[in-house]
């Protein structure tokens, strides 16, 4: 699905694009291909889903969204997929996943990330999720982040040789 040139493009851009008016031309030159080929390859990788998007990742904290709560829920297995779709569609839920429980320590199978300007705001949103889940939910918890420890995104290990 990818060839060595695709891989070289990923390695060259995973930390970011060159910040110049014609970034693809600059990249193409470093990899010894034409700008046109670079753009065609990026378009193909986007069509294949290898590239989700080209753009910026803002730092939520620096934009005032200082409260980040991972809400977790123990939802009836028979209902979790239907309810997960509804929770994922809430405007303030940024990511929502069904994940395996890790019993006995961790009974939760639905994870929904909520960002807000304060912990109170996030707690209020958490109540909205609880109301939506209703009786299909046995218990829940919220884990606020206290520090970003790393945020580099995916990095390929460089292949030997």
């Amino acid at each position: 699905m990818t060839d060595p040139t695709d891989r070289a493009i990923i390695e060259a851009t995973q930390a970011g694009l060159p910040l110049v008016p014609a970034p693809f031309a600059v990249l193409a030159e470093t990899l010894g291909i034409s700008e046109q080929e670079m753009i065609e390859r990026l378009k193909r990788m986007k069509a294949q889903g290898i590239i989700r998007r080209i753009g910026a990742a803002p730092n939520h904290y620096r934009l005032g969204l200082t409260a980040n709560g991972m809400t977790v829920w123990d939802v009836d297995d028979a209902a979790v997929d239907t309810l997960g779709e509804m929770v994922g569609a809430l405007p303030f839920v940024t990511h929502c996943y069904r994940r395996p429980r890790a019993l006995p320590d961790w009974p939760y199978n639905l994870f929904a990330m909520v960002h807000g300007a304060s912990r109170e705001e996030v707690q209020a949103k958490r109540q909205e999720i609880a109301a939506l889940l209703g009786s299909a939910c046995r218990s829940g918890d919220i884990l606020f982040s206290t520090r970003i420890l790393k945020k580099t995104g995916m990095r390929l290990r460089r292949k030997a040789g």
């Binding site: 290898i50 590239i51 080209i54 910026a56 945020k151 995916m154």
Partner: peptide, 13 residues
């Protein structure tokens, strides 16, 4: 300044 953590392609591993 850290307002953007990254600017570029987002790859789906």
């Amino acid at each position: 300044d850290g307002i953007l953590t990254r600017f570029g392609p987002f790859f789906d591993v």
